[in-house]
């Protein structure tokens, strides 16, 4: 059957749409990616400038900057991924953008998948690549300029240096990525609901939810029922982390499904 006239999902047509989207918007996408990498580079530069000093009298100094960068980069990666996800339905903000999207030859799922690849997967790949390269440059630079430091990559810090217990591993390798995926999905959903100024609106909504949730868990809930977190065993705490991670992933999947249906049902109104 003719690929173009096929009304079912087609990977080939999806890649044609992806190529079309990339060619038509590459300068805008490259500029957005460039700004993101530039901001990360500036943060790296600032941390390097303020964390290392020449002290030739002492050798094997601890690379404290690597520990700082783990947290700084985790925060930046989250914010960058949220900004990227909030752009997923950005072109549906204008009438001409909507017409361009609706009249593209492809199923709604293919069109959504193209956006997902660019703004969700693409953002993750770009972020990890940028952080990897920036960190590699930092290691090379510090090794030459400050040989008195025992320089470490942030990936080494994440995998080797933090204390090795089960709850740490779950938090680092399951909860943190789940929270990251959840954040992206939340901003994707926000973008499908309100395509303009999505990041600001999404930030405001998440802040409001955060305040309400904190009030509930810290103020209201203890009035009726006290969860003795301090009495949890290690196994119980691990189970709680796993449960939280799974819930975040399920919610993220639900957000993406709702965002897809919202995208599919949007019309020119």
């Amino acid at each position: 059957m003719d690929i173009i006239r096929n009304d079912n999902f087609s990977f080939l047509r999806m890649f044609m749409l992806l190529k079309r989207e990339w060619t038509a918007n590459r300068s805008k996408l490259l500029m957005q990616g460039g700004i993101l990498v530039g901001i990360l580079a500036m943060i790296y530069f600032f941390v390097i400038q303020s964390s290392y000093e020449d002290d030739y009298g002492v050798s094997n100094l601890d690379d404290d900057a690597a520990y700082i960068l783990v947290f700084v980069m985790a925060f930046c990666a989250n914010v960058a991924a949220e900004i990227s996800a909030s752009l997923i339905c950005n072109n549906l903000a204008s009438k001409s953008g909507k017409i361009n999207s609706f009249m593209s030859v492809g199923t709604p799922l293919e069109k959504y998948a193209v956006r997902f690849i660019i703004y969700i997967l693409g953002a993750v790949i770009l972020l990890f690549l940028a952080i990897f390269i920036l960190d590699f440059i930092r290691i090379c630079y510090v090794s030459i300029a400050y040989p008195n430091y025992d320089v470490k990559s942030i990936y080494t810090v994440i995998c080797m240096e933090f204390p090795h217990d089960a709850s740490y591993s779950i938090a680092m390798f399951l909860l943190a990525p789940s929270a990251f995926i959840f954040n992206q999905a939340f901003f994707t959903l926000m973008s499908s609901i309100t395509p303009t100024y999505t990041f600001i609106k999404g930030f405001a909504v998440s802040l409001a939810i955060g305040v309400v949730a904190n009030l509930f868990f810290i103020v209201v809930l203890p009035l009726f029922y006290w969860i003795p977190l301090t009495k949890l065993t290690d196994t119980g705490f691990c189970a709680l982390l796993i449960f939280a991670s799974v819930m975040l992933l399920i919610t993220a999947a639900v957000f993406h499904i709702i965002a897809y249906y919202k995208f599919k049902e949007t019309d020119l109104r």
Binding site: R5, K95, S96, I99, N100, M103, G106, T107
Partner: peptide, 22 residues
């Protein structure tokens, strides 16, 4: 339903449109 089989046989020139810088 915006199915590919109808979209590939339909073209609209709207009053306002965007063209990419290519």
């Amino acid at each position: 339903l915006r199915l590919p089989s109808t979209l590939c046989d339909t073209f609209i020139v709207p009053e306002e449109f965007d063209l990419p810088a290519i």
